[in-house]
Structures are given as C-alpha cells and as structure tokens.
C-alpha cells in the first residue's frame, strides 16, 4: 500500500513560479536523501514539465509528495493543467517533436530523468503528468 507522508501543492502560472516549484522539489529531494545527481535530475524534470504547463496549458498546479510504498521511499511530482490538452500523446513523447519553439526534448527528456512517468491528456479538459523517482 502506498502512503503519502508529506506533500505540498503549488500554483504555477508564470516563469517565476516555475523557479519556486524547482526550489520546493529540491527541498523534498534533499529531505529524502537523494544524491546530488538525482536531485539535479528531479529539479530538471520539474523545470521541463512546469514550463510545458505554463507555455501550453495556461499554468496549473504542481503537487510534490513524499511517498512510501512498503519499504520504498520516493518523491512524486504531479503537474496538472486545464489547458487545451495534447492531441497526439504518442507523437508528443517522441524526441524532437514540438509544437512550440522548443527543441522537443521536454516530455521524452523528462521521462528519462525519472523512474516512473505517466501522462494523461484529454482535448479540451487538460493534461496531467506524474513522475516518481525512488530513493
């Protein structure tokens, strides 16, 4: 069974709030005892996904959770917006694909930086991305 030990919810609507989300994820990652490389991976993935949310989803919320599943401890970060949604998820997960002015590394790149990655998107409803990295 999974239990959430500690969590924080942040509203992220602008670039300044992306920075705050990164700082909060760093705080949790330190608390969990992640090494520097893993901390860096987590805040970089957070930065990519929070920026996607601000650029394409009109902003949204970031939920940061310290979770336990049996003896495993991990950090889960969830990004949820009520933007236009992603038309072709399979396409969006491919390296090099972008509808904006980015390089298209955002989603597939962020996925490579974590242990678990889930994405769910509905046109006209919004997008939810959830990532977990285990200690």
């Amino acid at each position: 069974m999974e239990s959430t030990v500690k969590s924080d919810t942040l509203v992220v609507k602008n670039p300044q709030e992306i920075i705050l989300a990164r700082q909060k994820v760093r705080e949790y990652a330190r608390l969990l005892g992640f090494n520097l490389v893993d901390q860096t991976k987590l805040i970089t993935a957070t930065s990519e996904l929070a920026r996607n949310m601000v650029e394409y989803g009109g902003g949204g919320i970031v939920v940061i959770e310290l979770i336990y599943v049996r003896e495993h401890r991990g950090l889960r970060v969830t990004f949820e917006d009520q933007g236009p949604g992603i038309a072709d998820l399979e396409m969006a997960m491919q390296d090099g694909f972008t509808t904006g002015n980015g390089l298209g590394h955002g989603l597939p790149g962020a996925k490579r930086l974590v242990n678990e990655f889930e994405i769910d998107s509905k046109i006209g409803v919004g997008t939810r991305v959830s990532l977990v990295r285990w200690v």
Binding site: L36, T40, R112
Partner: peptide, 14 residues
C-alpha cells in the same frame, strides 16, 4: 558547468 548538471543534460538530450 557542475558535473551533476552535465550528467543530467546528456540524459535530457541537450
């Protein structure tokens, strides 16, 4: 560039 930053950038694909 910090080593941890370089490692992460490569995995990210930059």
């Amino acid at each position: 560039m910090q080593p941890a930053v370089a490692i992460t950038m490569v995995e990210l694909g930059i």
